[in-house]
Design a protein around this nucleic acid. Structure first.
Lengths: 337, 337
DNA sequence: CTGAAAGCGCTAACAT
DNA sequence: ATGTTAGCGCTTTCAG
């Protein structure tokens, strides 16, 4: 490998010369135009192979005014992003659909400080559209992004504008189902480790929890914010137990936090599933790797990712998809509740 | 948001007109050239602000023959990538250094099927260089990549070529230290859940394990391949226990697999750390979230990421860095061994 | 069905 | 210190 990139790459001009046609014809072949004679097509294709020609992306993008690239923006810091299997699942879904298209996906982990740079990138015409995947809510830079290129959000944005496109999960219903499940099993002293109060997903799940309890004429045993991380989840559970009083059951608004809750419970000599019923949310890999395996609310993250990608692709193709999709959740019974 | 991206973006021409200078002067300002009079600089800067000018990346890249973008190539499937905190840590390190430079980072999750497309992307002049981060070894497409742009590998490549640049961790020494630690505590019947035989990291750690045992005149109690995943780690541990015979201790070549091993041990009524000593490898978040917390070999993944990024940046700047860096590991004592 | 010509928005000599 | 002049490699009318 030389220090300077190999720039001897063949150009369309060279391919044209070798095939004995004009640049235009080569361009037509490369772009799959039908208006090319079989003979020309064959000659061009051969030349492309021989020269190992790959069109220069910058030139193409400059001329055509589109990049065939989309950005996957993650307004989270790296730890958080990689710490939560939820993201893996959603990204897998997105990447699957984008992978089947002729777009490439640029992942931008745009936490705090890096966001100005990321915004510049997005506004510099580097991508045709963006998917914003996050638990989060209040990223001001995201707003400015939407003025530049079409955007699809994962989860309901903090302030929904009429033009916004997003794919969400029915978090309120999920929270309600989880709580009702606990109620149905005879639990009455029910606490929750909630998601952050500044994230729609957290807010909605808590809402569902309160709804179900209220419908049963009950008060929450306790409500503690667990920040959607394992550590904070454990801390929240510790706070719930700090009074010395122990709930019958706890609805933990994410599997990762539930993992933390297990730890906090065991520190107090309490066995999850036996002494305190625990129900999670996500059905991520964290749920099955716990012992006892976690009863949880499954959200179709992979599918959510796919739908977001499709929505953006539709938008880019001028197909005007429905602006919103809400996916259902489902309860998964395992050993913890 | 309109279906067509906002393309009214200001061009350098408009900025020049507004500032009353030529395109060249604007270009100089944008690129931080010193040869610009204070007056002109001021006028241009004002015009840029007013017009919200952002240089078009494609045009810039076409003219300058560089993209100011680097690719982070992950030759793993999404599940694996997101399932292992090791990657999070390494990506965080890379992204930190790249974030401080004026390069942007494009993450390419290029598993199996997607790799052809990814290769095309990289060869189309979309990036100035690439970092390949993986446990893996035998990705043929990577070889062709290195002929196109400068590449830095995370971990020793399968076949090291004289021109290769990489940053690795001293896996052999780490494996040796882990095993010696077990030996020092009086364990004699020592098994290992090893990494895959086709990944240098797996091979090297196993080598260290064998070295230490041989030096003590001992044979391995058992050697089972755990594929670097939690599930396979659990399976490997189950296989070790299948004979009915129980080892004193086990060296598990990754924290994630150790998590699986805990599960397998407990299924058999064996308590990790009490009945069977367990030592891991990574010191990822998986290690501390286990109960008892995992004694493990810390590898400086974050630092490894940073060094890889620096190496690539040096390469791109024509600074010719040392082609290899090997980082030391360190033992972290916790409750499991 | 094919070629010629005119840019896309920017940088980089080269003058001045 | 600043402007002028050529392109970078490709797509896209527009003729033919």
């Amino acid at each position: 490998m030389s220090l300077t990139p190999v720039r001897g790459a063949a150009t369309i001009e060279e391919v044209a010369a070798r095939a004995g046609v004009s640049r235009s014809t080569v361009s037509r072949v490369v772009n799959g135009s039908t208006a090319v004679s079989p003979a020309a097509l064959d000659a061009v294709q051969r030349a492309i192979d021989e020269l190992q020609y790959v069109p220069n992306r910058a030139a193409r993008s400059l001329a055509s005014r589109q990049t065939r690239a989309i950005a996957l923006v993650i307004p989270e810091d790296t730890d958080r992003f990689f710490g939560d299997p939820f993201f893996g699942s959603i990204v897998a879904g997105i990447s699957q659909v984008i992978g089947e298209s002729d777009y490439v996906m640029n992942m931008l982990i745009a936490s705090d400080d890096a966001s100005a740079k990321a915004l510049g990138y997005l506004r510099s015409g580097s991508v045709d559209g963006a998917i914003v995947a996050s638990h989060h809510t209040s990223d001001t830079f995201i707003d400015r992004l939407a003025d530049t290129v079409p955007v699809v959000y994962g989860g309901r944005p903090a302030r929904v504008r009429p033009t916004d496109h997003y794919v969400d999960v029915d978090n309120v219903q999920g929270g309600r189902d989880a709580t009702q499940y606990l109620l149905d099993r005879g639990h009455r002293r029910i606490a929750t480790v909630a998601g952050p109060a500044d994230m729609p997903a957290g807010i909605d799940r808590l809402q569902g929890f309160r709804d179900a309890l209220a419908a049963a004429g009950l008060e929450p045993f306790a409500v503690e914010d667990g920040g959607f991380t394992e550590t904070e989840g454990a801390d929240a559970m510790r706070r719930i137990l700090a009074s010395g009083d122990v709930p019958d059951a706890v609805f933990v608004a994410s599997d990762l936090m539930a993992r933390g809750a297990y730890t906090a419970l065991r520190e107090r000599g309490l066995e999850p599933g036996r002494d305190v019923a625990v129900i999670g949310f996500d059905d991520s890999s964290a749920a099955t790797s716990l012992l006892p395996a976690l009863t949880t609310i499954r959200q179709p993250s992979h599918d959510q990712g796919r739908q977001m990608a499709r929505m953006l692709l539709d938008l880019l193709a001028g197909r005007a998809p429905a602006s919103t999709a809400i996916l259902p959740t489902e309860i998964i019974e395992r050993g913890s509740a």
